[in-house]
Amino acid sequence: MNAFRLAGDMTHLLSIILLLHKIRAMKSCAGISLRTQELYVIVFVTRYVDLSMKYYSFYNSIMKIVFLGTSISIVWYMRYHKVVKQTYNKDVDTFRHIFLILPCFVLALLINRAFTVIEVLWTFSLYLEAVAILPQLVLLQRSRNIDNLTGNYVFLLGAYRAFYLLNWIYRFFIENHQVRWIPWLSGLLQTAIYADFFYYYIKSWKNREKLKLPA
C-alpha cells in the first residue's frame, strides 16, 4: 500500500458516498445515469469474485464489501425506491450498455494474462470500468444544468483512477518492476476519457460559473 493508492481508494470511496448522500438526502437521482451505475455493479461483482476465496488484508476485504454494498444500493434506489425512481428520466439515459459489456467481454477472452475464470472476469472488469462512465458523460452533455453534487461525483470518480496511475508508476519503480499492461492501459484509457470533463469542470470552477459540457 502506498499513499497514491490510498488517496485513490479514498477518492473513489468519497465519490460513491457523495452520490449516495445526494440520492438519500435529496431523494433524487436527477442527472445520474442508471446505466453507468449498473455497469459499476458489474465491474465490482466481476472484480471481487475472489472476495470469499482470497484474503489480502482487512482493508482490502472491507473496501470490497463497501464498494459492492454501496454500488448495489445506488442501483436499488434508482430502480426500486418509490420516490427516487420517479426522479429517474430513462428517456435521456439511453446509452445501450450492452455495446460496452459485450466488446469488453470478448476482448477479455482474447487479451488476458491467463485463461481462467477469475483472470478473465478480472480483466473484463478492468476493461469495462475504463468505459463505464460513458453513459454518464453522455447524460451530462444532454443535461442543461448539471448540479454541483453530480459534477463533483464525476470529478472524484475520474480523479481516483488518476491516483491509481501514480500508484502503478510508484509500484513499478519502487516495488517489483512488474509490467502490468492490462491495468495500466485500461486505467490510462479510463482517465483519458475524463480529459474533456476535467477541462470543463476546472474551467467552471475557476470562472465560478455553472458546469456546462458542450453537446
Binding site: 481508494d9 473513489h12 489480502y56 482490502n60 483472470e119 478480472w122 516495488e175 517489483n176 512488474q178 502490468r180
Partner: peptide
C-alpha cells in the same frame, strides 16, 4: 509474476 500482487488492488 505471481498472481497475488496483481489482484491486491481494488
Amino acid at each position: 509474476t505471481s498472481n497475488a500482487n496483481l489482484h491486491d488492488e481494488l
